[in-house]
Structures are given as structure tokens and as C-alpha cells.
Nucleic acid binder design. Structure first.
Lengths: 218, 218
DNA sequence: ATTACTAGTAGACGAGTAA
DNA sequence: TTTACTCGTCTACTAGTAA
């Protein structure tokens, strides 16, 4: 019975309730949900109870807004649709080459990681990673990718510092085999780290600011 | 109460029922839908009745598949999610420059259309259109765009031939103002026609096979 | 206008079971 | 094992109405 909640949340989101509080009477919500004012009022109370929305109950009209939990509910359903409609056998990330080795570069270049890359990817990465700044409109695809199985690279301890698990996803840039590497304990970022057998900048003659398409295998 | 049907259709699609017949017992579907075998069986009959699925009732196990109507149901909901999550104030179409004036080019370059373009777009297009072959993974975005209001260009008759209504959507290629023009009575294609005040190939130094991002305004 | 209670009803669901 | 019927229950809805 989770379905009726996401249905309501979706309609609220379409009314603009994702970013801001919106003034929606129970009568109006009932119209959007094709149900009575009374039922819509009840639905709002249920959504409040489940912490999917928050409400500012003014004198004339209530104002409601999705919580991050509510947004997550929608995202889950959205990702199901993406699995249905978008996934052929690859996902294409559009982005721009970014400068710097970055923290991730140092992180990833540990020998322990490198040996494991050799095993799962079939090549020993060239030292250093290529950073790609993923276009805003493609950042959501990273969620999808993290939902894939990928290749798990075990973490380890060294010199008192802990290096966590990393997941590698096989990919291609301009038909050159490479892999996206993502530390498991990472939250939303718009920069991805790419490892490759070759020095990608030199091999493909790409530089900071150049646009690239990263084709991730599924 | 359409919601429970799309819920079932979505789960069937996730099981692979979009492309091929899949063997799913009512027991299994019940598991996927978190309901009893009996209710799942009933749901299947309802979906059949609504022509959302077709069934091949074998001796041991039934095999089901979504119909195009069923897929359309899902697409409708999918597009709602895209409006929620993907639409900021633009949609980016990734594609490749394609050669030839094409039929659309001749079509669009009629004076009657051109005068109307001047009115709604604020510029008189350079004669001829730029054809962009939209990447496979972005073709679905064309659905979204066609769902927008856009600018309607009225059709007309000339020399016994009828020219239908056309819709123009303001866009930008590498920050140059242009517009995508779509004949209203067009079905799924992966090539879009673009009009612009300037000769785009010359202005931007682009040629067949070059990749471009078309940023469509909402 | 609002929101939201109570009461009554229609329909969705699962158990039991037949084919 | 399947699919799918009947039937009883219980939930989800709407109408009426209060605040």
C-alpha cells in the first residue's frame, strides 16, 4: 500500500512541492488525485504521519512541502522507470574534463587498490585518475550507476589510515576501455574519477574543459 | 484507481515484460506486487481486460507481455517523473550533425512558415535547416519536448499541397539562439530540424558528424 | 472559505477451493 | 503444480457535518 502515497507525493511534486512550500487546499489536492476533499485531507495526514511531507497550517490555506524522505520515495520509483526505459546496455554520462589529481586520485593510486583493479578490470591502471565533471542534467544517472553491481574493490588499512571499499564500473571513453571508480562511502558529487590502462589525456588528446562522453557498461 | 494498474505494469516491465513474453505465474506476480496469488490473478485479468497486457496461457505457466497501450501508460508516468526530476529550465539533446537538406528542410522553408517564425521567434530564419541526429539515449526526451507548449505555426495550402501545423521550440546551440521545428503530425524520429537566424554550419564551423548539444528552453 | 471528524458504503483483498 | 472462482472481512472511500 505504499503506492497510494507515492501517487500523492508525485502529484504534489508536480504542483511544485519539491523545492518550496506550496499552498494547496485539500480540495485542490483532491482534484489532482481524483478523490474527494475528505480523502485528500486524510491522505495529507497520512503523509505527515509518515514524514513524507511537512505542513505549515495557516489560517486560510495550508502550505505543504515534500521532505527529503518524501523525495527519496519518488526517486525510488523514478529509478525504476529509468531501469525500464533508459537502460539498454549502457549509460552515457556527458561531462567536462576537470583539472587536478584531486583527493580521489591519491586515494585510488594506492598499490593495494591497483592490484585489485588488475584482477577485476583486466588491466593495471596508469597512475592517476581522470576527473570528469558530470553535467548537471546527468548527475542523477550516478544514482542509477551506484545501483548496479559493478566490481567491488576491498578496502584496507595502511600507515594508520583507512582506505574504504571502492566500486569500479567498466566504461569507455571514445571507445577506449576504462573504469569509473567510486568510493562506497561517497555521497552525491558531480565529479567522477576514471582509471585507464593508458594516460587518457595524452592518448585521446583531451584537456581541461574538453567535453567527453563516458559510456558506462551495465 | 488507475494507479494500481500502472504499479502492476511497472513491475511486469521490470521483470522484462516490455520486450518479450515472460513466464510469470500469478504466484510470482503476487510476490512482486506484495499481494496474494488470488489478487494477482485478478489483477492480470483486469490488465487483460484493459488491453494493457496480452497473455499466452500455456499448460504449465502463463506468459505475458505489455501491449503498446500498456507501455504508453508507463511512459505517461515516466514523463511525470522526468518533469519532476529532469526539468530545470531546459532540456539538453545530445546529437550529431547530419547531412542533407532533407524533406523537412524544403517543407520548413516555405515563405508562409518563415513569416510566422519571424513573429514568434523574433528572427527570420536563414533558409534551410540544420539536421541533428539525436543520440539513441536522448530520443525519449523528444516526447517530453512535444509535451511542452512551444510556439504553434499554422499550416496552409499552396499549389494543391497541404502544409500542416508546425511547432517551434526555442533552443540554443553553443549559446546561439535557434529553434527546433517539429511538424505536429510527426511520429517518432531521431532527427530534428533546427532553424536559426544565421547559417549555423558556417557560424559555428560545424560539419557532418560533429557532435552538438541542443539546449531546448522550457 | 478552510480542515477534518464520524458514519455508512462500496470495493479490494485473501482464504478456501475447484478445475 | 497451475489459474481463477465464491465468499466473508476489512479497508478506503465519500457524504454529512462540525469547528
Amino acid at each position: 500500500m505504499d503506492e497510494k502515497y507515492t501517487f500523492a507525493l508525485r502529484k504534489i511534486a508536480l504542483l511544485g512541492g519539491m523545492n518550496d512550500y506550496i499552498a494547496v487546499s485539500s480540495r485542490e489536492l483532491g482534484e489532482a488525485l481524483d478523490m474527494s476533499q475528505q480523502s485528500a485531507s486524510k491522505r495529507i495526514l497520512e503523509l505527515l504521519d509518515k514524514k513524507y511531507i511537512v505542513r505549515d497550517l495557516g489560517a486560510r490555506k495550508q502550505r505543504i512541502k515534500l521532505t527529503s524522505e518524501g523525495i527519496d520515495q519518488l526517486k525510488g520509483e523514478y529509478n525504476e522507470y529509468r531501469r525500464i526505459f533508459e537502460l539498454s546496455d549502457h549509460i552515457v554520462l556527458h561531462g567536462t574534463i576537470k583539472s587536478g589529481l584531486g583527493e580521489g586520485g591519491y586515494y585510488i593510486c594506492q598499490n593495494n587498490y591497483m592490484d585489485q583493479f588488475q584482477d577485476v578490470l583486466g588491466f593495471k591502471p596508469y597512475e592517476g585518475t581522470l576527473n570528469v565533471h558530470v553535467d548537471k542534467e546527468d548527475v542523477g544517472k550516478l544514482d542509477l550507476i551506484k545501483g548496479l553491481t559493478g566490481h567491488t574493490i576491498d578496502g584496507f588499512h595502511k600507515d594508520g589510515r583507512s582506505f574504504g571499499n571502492v566500486t569500479a564500473y567498466k566504461a569507455k571513453i571514445r571507445n577506449v576501455d576504462c573504469a569509473i571508480v567510486v568510493p562506497d562511502r561517497t555521497h552525491h558529487k558531480d565529479v567522477i574519477e576514471i582509471v585507464c590502462q593508458y594516460h587518457l589525456r595524452r592518448t585521446l588528446s583531451i584537456n581541461d574543459g574538453d567535453r567527453v562522453d563516458v559510456r558506462v557498461e551495465i
